[in-house]
């Protein structure tokens, strides 16, 4: 019951932050457009007035991209270097906005103004960055241990069976441990915003202690939100990938739907922040 209340409280807090969710979405969209818009123009120029585009609709991408008239190397290089920059900038942007969101999600933070949101985002940025780097490192390290080492053993055994079983067990282990790492990050951040301290390392230590102080309830509260996040992402990706609108109107509607998915995705993340914020405040 208490878990449900935490989830409900997180949901309500998140709904109250709707305008900041829109702000985050708009900035993310602008960032992505910086990559996709010029890339689209480049591809259009490369294809000229050709009707080979029809093959793209049918899914025969290689038939188009492999032609000597298509500047594949340049466009792929543009895409991948641009994608890396956009992903990196996107993560930094969201680390920045997380400071504002956590501040606004607090019990006493509901009516904070733009200056407070952005002020908290700016004030917490560097230590949030440190927290994120540490958490990414933990995730990377954990993945390396859980997936990498057994895979190496399995590969050296050169047995299909060993390899398959190891991969499956590793994936399950990672899925089970993943929420714990996320919880450490969330507890660290809410502690920092609430305490006013600006020490990322101390926040991480605090995150660990807060998590283990309230392990079961925290885990059971956050896992449903993470599961919904994951399921939603998979469904959204599938819908977007498989949609085949024929006309311009259909393409536009798909775009709108896609942006709605992106907004909901940010909202779900905010819901998780809200739930952990409620857990934190309840534990004090």
């Amino acid at each position: 019951m208490k878990i449900l209340l935490h989830l409900l409280s997180g949901l309500v807090r998140s709904i109250r932050c709707w305008k900041w969710i829109f702000v985050i979405w708009i900035w993310n969209l602008l960032l992505v457009t910086l990559l996709t818009f010029p890339l689209k123009s480049a591809v259009n120029i490369s294809l000229g007035s050709s009707m080979i585009r029809e093959r793209l609709t049918e899914g025969y991408f290689l038939d188009v991209l492999s032609n000597s008239g298509f500047d594949l190397k340049t466009i792929l290089s543009f895409f991948f270097s641009g994608l890396f920059l956009v992903l990196f900038a996107g993560v930094i942007l969201n680390i920045f906005f997380a400071g504002g969101l956590f501040n606004t999600l607090r019990e006493d933070g509901m009516r904070r103004k733009a200056a407070d949101f952005l002020g908290s985002a700016g004030a917490n940025f560097w230590s949030f960055l440190i927290i994120s780097v540490i958490v990414f490192f933990i995730l990377f390290f954990l993945s390396g241990i859980i997936i990498g080492i057994p895979s190496l053993i399995a590969l050296s055994s050169k047995s299909d069976f060993v390899f398959t079983m190891t991969a499956k067990i590793s994936a399950i282990l990672l899925l089970v441990l993943w929420p714990l790492v996320i919880l450490i990050a969330d507890y660290s951040r809410i502690w920092q915003v609430s305490s006013g301290e600006k020490n990322g390392l101390r926040a991480i230590v605090k995150g660990f202690s807060l998590l283990f102080k309230n392990l079961l309830r925290s885990y059971l509260s956050v896992v449903p939100v993470l599961a919904i996040q994951l399921l939603f992402t998979l469904i959204a990706i599938r819908l977007i990938l498989y949609a085949r609108p024929a006309g311009s109107g259909g393409i536009f509607l798909l775009y709108i739907l896609g942006q709605a998915f992106a907004i909901i995705k940010i909202f779900l993340r905010s819901w998780r922040y809200g739930t952990v914020t409620d857990l934190y405040e309840a534990s004090r």
């Binding site: 993310n28 259009n44 585009r53 793209l56 996107g90 977007i240 798909l254 993340r269």
Partner: peptide, 18 residues
């Protein structure tokens, strides 16, 4: 076709960033 592909790419990158 190109417009559709890039609309999709944009949404997928947005979801991935999140």
């Amino acid at each position: 076709p190109i417009r559709l592909i890039f609309r999709k790419i944009a949404v997928l990158i947005l979801l991935f960033i999140d």
